[in-house]
Nucleic acid binder design. Sequence first.
DNA 1: GATTGCGAATTTGTCATATAATTCATTGAC
DNA 2: GTCAATGAATTATATGACAAATTCGCAATC
Lengths: 248, 248
Amino acid sequence: MRRIKPITVGMVEIDLAEHRKRKLNRTQTMLNLLGKTIVSGGYEGVPFPTEEELSKTHGVSRSVTREAVKMLTAKGLVNARTRQGTTVQPPSHWNMFDADVLRWLLDREPSLELLRHFNQLRIAIEPEAAALAAIHHTDAQMLLIEAGLARMADAETGADDPLASDIAFHVSILHATRNPFYEQFEPMVATALRTSIRFTNAIKGHSASLCDHGAVAQAVADRDPAMAREAMRKIIGDVLELIDDGTA
Amino acid sequence: MRRIKPITVGMVEIDLAEHRKRKLNRTQTMLNLLGKTIVSGGYEGVPFPTEEELSKTHGVSRSVTREAVKMLTAKGLVNARTRQGTTVQPPSHWNMFDADVLRWLLDREPSLELLRHFNQLRIAIEPEAAALAAIHHTDAQMLLIEAGLARMADAETGADDPLASDIAFHVSILHATRNPFYEQFEPMVATALRTSIRFTNAIKGHSASLCDHGAVAQAVADRDPAMAREAMRKIIGDVLELIDDGTA
DNA sequence: GATTGCGAATTTGTCATATAATTCATTGAC
DNA sequence: GTCAATGAATTATATGACAAATTCGCAATC
């Protein structure tokens, strides 16, 4: 009966291409669609559709709709109650560290405000992460950190991707803390760095940046927490300064 | 045909009482059950059951099982693929800031190690949160902070619950940052505080603690970020010290 | 013997329909 | 006016069927 995939949309842009490329199934497509719509305020004022409405609108079965809504519930975006229907939760309930939610947020507004919020968090997390890494890192993790630094050096000469190497370095520090909570910030840090270059692509003061990153690595290697913290704070502080300048 | 709720379990303890009390539906019960089991390593070595097995074992329909698994997927605990089955993800993929995951973790091990990890994070987050609060708080938020402080004072005289007032104070600081990412730490901070008293119930140096908290509030009111940061760092630092002593 | 191709089996993914449970609104009795 | 009974709307659960994707074994070929 139904031969063509009836994946289509109401308000958000159609992501059929992305859908095909990533081989998303219908539940995942539905999840993305609803997530994006919620995050971009598509249901403010209007009540969230019932399961039946959603199913009809998007040409999928109720099972698909329900499972997508369940996932949204698990991420804190909505809350479903019998008879009352499904309601969108206020943003404070959203799981901001979820990779999907972050993606939807950026999709909505790669705004300076969001970038500032990211980096306000980074300046709390990463210096302390560097300090913890200085204390708790294993030899293998130290090698990874140095590898990240080497990649950044390569990026100087064009032999590697600057963004990827930057992410690799910061992520390696997070893991070296050996604290599972710090490791959770990987998607956020990666996202923040990716977003940064969109706004401040002029900041190719990479030579200075490379030097700063080297200082962090050295302090971690020396198992000097205070120094590591300071060095990392300088890196993030510089970024934050640039962003604040962008605003003012 | 089926008259009695067939909610029962295999390896984890039966939470029928909790189930009734919180009026959990079957999907939520299933979610809790699977979540606890996964977090406590119940599926290490053995493959995760298929949908049909789970449904049979727990006497629920495949819908319920599937929706529970979907929620676990959304929280990063498992990954389902056609024909390959559902696999448990490594802990680094788990969404550690999810309230459910936190609860399951504590249910497994209210361990000193976990408590230390919590507070290693708090010492990054909360001092910076206090600094941000000093800059960005609104009048209403300042009132909430002072209310929290007042409750702590009441707790001194037994007029209020010490734990609840402590949580209220710290949470009010988080919200005063006006940064949605900081607000996400509410469940973690609350959990950390709740867990603390189990271990360090001797720390009823509340008079000292009250004084320290007052210093934070004052610095925030004065819009003095550096002072707020320092005062908060002292509070968490003291806790961390106690925990580390407990280990050594 | 190694590789490629094909088909069967397995498991999640999707659909359709029916029924239960819960809650809100309305109506009616007192 | 208050309270209980009734009904309606919506999610929750059950059931059975089929689709899609991936693995695995087997066979054919080189």
